[in-house]
């Protein structure tokens, strides 16, 4: 028996909007720790890891570890039917091949049940070891989203270079080139507007902008994004989900031309 009640149901709506275009089908894993997911895109270039900790739910009942295969497009369709202020409860019985989403309006005057078919998914799980990254950039998520969008109108790839001067995002395409430098800036009034760079050695990596733009669909989940870079590792693009956990995207680099 599984029953997860999330008062801030909009979080789950935002999570699905952030990942449904990257991954078609995925297993959601429920355990005492929380509600989690790890899935790769079909080309094995990008991976999404989601954790919503059990403490973040108003009610969290998970009698035994359960893996539920869902089509994320269909799940997103169902969650779109929930209001932004609705409380969302997920329910599943042991051995059932369906999951039920219950939506309650804040005033309790509208209660909806949506039952979705589960599916068997042969998912590949990757072990992701803890790593020391050469550079960690923390910046406003809206700024990062803007940069990825702007650069993708010029080129297909972005070179992210971190030095002690700042973080540089560069692209080149048929019409020309673009370079955007964000300097460390931690003197702003609001912490969510700061750009903070922690660096042990300079790093420069090239990535496909198509994936970066897909990751920025998580922007509504957090005002801050963290980029963790090492010269010999995939980049980690992390959006923290307040009080609950995180959504992390891993992206393999391109070989520099």
């Amino acid at each position: 028996m599984l029953e997860l009640r999330l008062v801030q149901g909009s979080l789950l709506k935002k999570v699905l909007e952030a990942i449904k275009d990257l991954v078609n089908d995925a297993n959601f894993d429920c355990s005492a720790t929380g509600f989690s997911l790890q899935a790769m895109d079909s080309s094995h270039v990008a991976l999404v890891a989601l954790l919503l900790r059990s403490e973040g739910f108003e009610h969290y009942r998970c009698d035994r570890n359960l893996s539920m295969g869902m089509n994320l497009g269909n799940m997103a369709k169902m969650l779109k039917c929930a209001g932004n202020d609705d409380i969302i409860t997920l329910k599943a019985d042991d051995g059932s091949d369906t999951v039920t989403f219950m939506f309650e309006s804040p005033t309790q005057d509208k209660i909806s049940d949506f039952e979705m078919k589960l599916m068997d998914i042969d998912s590949e799980h990757l072990g992701i070891p803890e790593a020391e990254y050469h550079a960690i950039v923390r910046m406003p998520s809206s700024e990062f989203g803007r940069i990825c969008k702007d650069l993708s109108s010029i080129g297909d790839t972005v070179v992210i270079s971190v030095t002690k001067e700042g973080v540089k995002f560069s692209t080149r395409g048929d019409i020309g080139t673009a370079n955007i430098v964000c300097r460390q800036n931690n003197t702003v009034d609001k912490p969510e507007e700061a750009t903070i760079i922690e660096m042990t050695e300079p790093v420069s990596l090239t990535f496909a902008l198509r994936y970066m733009n897909s990751f920025t669909k998580a922007t509504p989940l957090s005002s801050i994004v963290t980029l963790s870079l090492s010269s010999d590792l995939p980049v980690v693009v992390e959006y923290k989900i307040a009080e609950m956990g995180y959504i992390r995207f891993y992206l393999a680099p391109k070989i520099e031309e």
Binding site: V45, A46, L47, L126, G127, P234, Y250, A252, K254, I255
Partner: peptide, 14 residues
């Protein structure tokens, strides 16, 4: 494109 690495070159399947 063919100069794109994959995650399987970095992380092990478990």
């Amino acid at each position: 494109s063919n100069n794109q690495k994959t995650l399987l070159g970095f992380f092990q399947k478990v």
